[in-house]
Design a protein around this nucleic acid. Sequence first.
DNA 1: TTGTAGGCGTTATCAT
DNA 2: ATGATAACGCCTACAA
Lengths: 337, 337
Amino acid sequence: MNIRDIARLAGVTHTTVSRVLNNKGYISEETKRKVLRVIKANDFYPSEAARRISLGMGEEIAFISTKYASQFISRVIEGAEDKSYGMGKYENKLTLYSTRGTQDLKKEILMRILHGKLADAVIMLFVEPDRATVLAYKKAGIPIILLEGKMKGVHSVTVDNISGAYEATSFLTGKGLKKIGLIRGETGVEEVGPTPMDREKGYKKALLEAGIAFDRNLVEEVKSYSFEEGKLAFGKLLSRDKALDAVFCAAGDICAMGVIEQARELKIKVPGEISVIGFDNIIMSSQVKPALTTVRQPVYEMGGRAFEMAVDAAEGRLGNVVNLLVKPQLIVRESVK
Amino acid sequence: MNIRDIARLAGVTHTTVSRVLNNKGYISEETKRKVLRVIKANDFYPSEAARRISLGMGEEIAFISTKYASQFISRVIEGAEDKSYGMGKYENKLTLYSTRGTQDLKKEILMRILHGKLADAVIMLFVEPDRATVLAYKKAGIPIILLEGKMKGVHSVTVDNISGAYEATSFLTGKGLKKIGLIRGETGVEEVGPTPMDREKGYKKALLEAGIAFDRNLVEEVKSYSFEEGKLAFGKLLSRDKALDAVFCAAGDICAMGVIEQARELKIKVPGEISVIGFDNIIMSSQVKPALTTVRQPVYEMGGRAFEMAVDAAEGRLGNVVNLLVKPQLIVRESVK
DNA sequence: TTGTAGGCGTTATCAT
DNA sequence: ATGATAACGCCTACAA
């Protein structure tokens, strides 16, 4: 069943059917109705491959991330998807690609999309293209939106990690706490980028404002952001400074829960003796005892914003390079005195 | 840049280039090398839309689920994706579709795939097509694999919920526990299907074998599978029978953690006074105190198996209807006496 | 072993 | 307002 078949059944030519399908050019109301009836009756859907080849473009928005499986990532996707329905654009045409953390796949996917003209715009989460690719995309007129990444001359949406860490730490200093440990991710890792360092910057800034000297001994680095690591890191922090009265776990809530668990095992009361703040606001954080005070990243919104930008850029409505910085928000619960 | 350009640069015709690209027909090693060099040099990728239209088929496997965002779903996807790389087939050609829980979208997606000839096979998770659609797909030669669903004449991969619940309950009766509460999801809900009832069946079977009479009072139904609901359900169970000595929370680990939390608040010791078993084996389950004994669904493996079946079916290697039943596994931790 | 010619299903251009 | 014709980029009988 193709448009020619429909045309024959409706007693017109395929050109007319195409016009009806795309609401383009002049068609009499009557022919339109007639054609539409045949289309409905035969449950006809035009071939996307054919339209694509004919239009010479993708008709979809590509979403590239390292994987699909994290809370964070899937929430971003949800935000983007919802926005597509909200805008009534590219509905169900958000195509997901996963690089599985490999450079090879990343390159292949980017090339496939570019040369196959698969997408009208590309959103990349935690994944950065190399310079050459950026140029090639620019030349092909396919805009790129970086989510949680930043490159010169490329649109981006990023969390203001400095601000988030600053808010959290200020909240602690505001409570009169002075010996505040920081647990953060490794710096200098390609996959996570400048995030850990930015969070340390925010932490330092808040300390400075409160007139507290920065103490390298109160910083602990973590690799896998796990519960177990959180326990360990807290132990180390404590062994270096018994007077510790708070921990800002910039390495995430799971890690922060590890901290709390370790405190429990050492019979240290949270928040009585030690206050703890996490980062991410995962679902569990509100259900755990004590409920975790944490920094909420506007993950869902970021997905939506990135999608909006992608559509705008695809339709040529985004002139200059846009770098959106979204502010996270402190969620106050029970784990701070 | 298309195959004709490549052909010109290599001093052959586009037919030869096509042969090289597809490794089909006779080509001299020399021409092949020559053409491949030009392809590499120009970083050429053939248009997928064009191949598709010319081959008349999808060249991808469609994966339809209600959403992308759950632990369970993304793990299944991971399993399928990994398998695609393992098999070296349909690599990066697993296309994700989300119905967002709506019937309209489900129908539209299924129609788009069918009429657009987008996929060579379709895997559906938590989503069931209607009879007419099944027929239409059969006629079009596009196989369907149901994941966690079952229909007459359709391939499927499902968890053996009866067996999982049986194992869990048997483990409890084996410990000499007699008053075993069951918390399960609502029955008769289209989206979750027969799962809650199957788990109740397994529970009953184990009781029967242990010579314990089934007591309707010890069954509690839950709607959203949440932490909060778990707390509530446990409270109700306890109010109906003070002698309760175990709970099998077939409604999932999050719910089971609610049960444990409620017990903690009521100063009831787990596992000292009440034993608890969950279902799902989410990440948190091993990290919580006491670590949760639970039933692990082989989620990842299911994705892989479904993908294998999809490829086999797409390549005509799956004769009869295959209904794969995968057995879950009891993970023993600390929450049972 | 390689080339020629036609077809896949759509959209776009230019007549009518 | 509608139709005839070409074009998109690829694949594939069939011919050479």
